[in-house]
Computed example of a mutant assay.
Amino acid sequence: MLEYLKSVLFGIVQGITEWLPISSTGHLILLNQFTPLTVAADPARNQEFFDMFKVLIQFGSILAVVVLYFHKLNPFSPKKTEREKKNTFSLWGKVLVASVPAGIIGILFNDVIDSVLSTPYVIAATLILYGVLFLILESRNKQPKVKKFSELTYQMALLIGVCQMLALIPGTSRSGATILGAVFLGCSRFVAAEFSFFLAIPAMLGASGVKILIFLVEGGGFSGPELGILLVGMVISFIVSMLAIRFLMGFIKKHDFKAFGWYRIVLGIVVVLYFALSGAQMMPV
Rank of each mutant, 00 (worst) to 15 (best):
D114T: 08
S115N: 15
F198V: 09
I179C: 05
Y274C: 12
V285C: 08
Q47E: 05
G220R: 08
A157S: 14
L199V: 10
G93P: 09
N110C: 03
L166K: 00
P144V: 14
Q33G: 07
S24T: 06
V55K: 02
L31R: 07
K72V: 08
M282D: 04
F222R: 00
I113K: 01
Y69K: 07
P120E: 12
L213F: 15
I252E: 02
W19D: 03
F275D: 00
L158P: 00
K80C: 11
T178R: 02
L231Q: 08
V191W: 04
R264C: 12
T17Y: 07
F134D: 00
S278R: 04
I214N: 15
I104L: 15
K145E: 15
V66I: 15
K254T: 06
S188Y: 11
F10Q: 11
E194I: 09
F70H: 13
Y121W: 02
P78E: 13
A98F: 12
I214R: 15
E82C: 06
C187I: 08
D256R: 03
S7E: 00
S139Q: 08
S150T: 15
S99Q: 08
T38W: 01
S24A: 04
E151R: 14
V266P: 06
L68P: 01
I245K: 02
D42V: 07
V270N: 07
P75R: 13
D42E: 14
F257N: 05
V13I: 15
K148V: 08
L127D: 01
I104R: 12
M156G: 05
K85F: 02
L30H: 05
Q281V: 14
F149L: 06
V232G: 01
E3G: 03
P36I: 01
V183F: 02
I136C: 13
F215G: 03
P36M: 10
E194W: 10
A207Q: 04
V235M: 06
M52G: 10
V235Q: 05
E84K: 14
G131W: 03
L56R: 01
I107G: 08
I169M: 13
V266F: 14
A40K: 06
N32S: 09
C163M: 15
A125P: 10
Y274V: 06
V183Q: 02
M1S: 14
L127G: 00
S24Y: 02
S115D: 08
E3P: 00
F76E: 02
T38H: 09
P120Y: 10
Y274N: 10
A200V: 08
K253G: 10
A167G: 11
L30Y: 03
G250P: 02
R264Y: 06
E138P: 00
G220E: 09
F89V: 11
V183H: 02
P170E: 06
I107R: 13
Y154C: 08
V95K: 05
G161F: 07
G206H: 06
N32Y: 10
K142H: 14
F198W: 07
I16P: 02
F195Q: 07
G131M: 04
T153A: 03
S23I: 04
T119R: 11
P284A: 07
V122K: 01
K79M: 10
V132Q: 09
S118Q: 11
G60W: 02
I136Q: 10
N46L: 12
S77G: 09
R45T: 08
Y69H: 10
V240H: 02
N141G: 10
L205Y: 13
N87R: 15
T119Q: 03
L91Q: 02
A182K: 04
F222L: 14
F275S: 01
G176I: 01
I245D: 04
